[in-house]
Design a protein around this nucleic acid. Sequence first.
DNA 1: AGAATTTTTAACCGCGACGAACATTTATTA
DNA 2: TAATAAATGTTCGTCGCGGTTAAAAATTCT
Lengths: 223, 223
Amino acid sequence: MSKAEISEAVDHEDVPRRSWKQDPDGVRANILQVAREAFAQKGLSGTRIDEIAARTSTSKRMIYYYFGDKEGLYLEVLADAYRRTREAEDALELEGLQPEEALRKIAEFTFDNHRRSQDFIRLVMIENVHEARHMPGSVEMSGENSSAIRMLEDIYARGLEAGIFRPGLSAVELHWHISALSYFNVSNRATFSHIFGDELFSEEGQNTLRRHVGDMILRLVLV
Amino acid sequence: MSKAEISEAVDHEDVPRRSWKQDPDGVRANILQVAREAFAQKGLSGTRIDEIAARTSTSKRMIYYYFGDKEGLYLEVLADAYRRTREAEDALELEGLQPEEALRKIAEFTFDNHRRSQDFIRLVMIENVHEARHMPGSVEMSGENSSAIRMLEDIYARGLEAGIFRPGLSAVELHWHISALSYFNVSNRATFSHIFGDELFSEEGQNTLRRHVGDMILRLVLV
DNA sequence: AGAATTTTTAACCGCGACGAACATTTATTA
DNA sequence: TAATAAATGTTCGTCGCGGTTAAAAATTCT
């Protein structure tokens, strides 16, 4: 019998287990948050369950207790991340702005918002590598109730009516372009700056890019 | 002795080994190609070496023989992918075009070229998830000899001289925007179409988007 | 008290990267 | 041509990592 085995056996004898408070929701939320950061950092197969467990205030076993398995956890992390982002977008206020101003604002807000939501962007990157295999067909991830689209539809309609926007565009297309420019700025920073330097990521650089994004979207729709 | 063991023993006795041709470059290239597809599909940690080996015309042994380990292989796949892409970009011909036409052409060419280079895009996505940790500081991946940048510099300078482009922009910024719009169209197709449908990916949809990309870049620089 | 739920402790075990050893065939060089 | 080097195949083994589970203890609910 090795020393380790002996000490283990001894440990078992009279060490009383610690007591604890039950807090299902708290534990769940804690795991979810830690897992979000972990998956965003390392991806699905790159993340170690032990790694997640270590950073929670609970144990590895509880992950399986609440989420079944690794993929189940990833799934809920993803759904939760979309939910949060949707909420952030809802907060944008465009009341009383002219179509031109409103469109620039929504574009530049998206640019800034994406910069703030690095974890979310990374999760989306990862999910696209997986070809969206884990996106549940749930209501959470449907575009029907996207406030971004609704806002763009409204703005574009008003601009058309005012005769300052050219016809033939769609809200989804506008959303596409705005997203592309804002998303890429976060998603591809690593490789791009490795190749072309990081001047574009200085405060000035980012201010310039933000303005350009507004310019491009606006000029795209103006007659 | 099991049946399998018996048949193995029998196999060993008088079955002469097949002969082969030595082809180091061919074998290397074969592995590299298979590995590129595999890594592009599943990522670094998601890819199994056995999986790669199975799809090559050689054996797992040779992978380690030529590339050392998994990460070494990934590294060379990445460098090779950039090399190929660089070459594709070099092929673009802009002789005799006016700045406006040339700019639109380079933008729309990039859009199409990215669509054709899905594996490359996926490798870049993956490498960005890894925060470009594997991009060697080699010449291969430096922007100094990027023909895309040189072309844009030339076009922009000519447009400025002609008084049709507004000053204050840089070639890298233009490249950034063109890349963003073209890259996102490939990288985020999965999640985006899951949420907003896939009309934008029909032939018409893509034609529209391509034209928009040209419009946006052009209108961004025009006075 | 008894049942259901939450949490702890401690293993299990398969997969997959990697290496060893050896045989064999092809290319190169002296 | 002989000797040497390089390239390829085959087979087996190992070793740790990491996802997953078993079983029991503590807590909460009724």
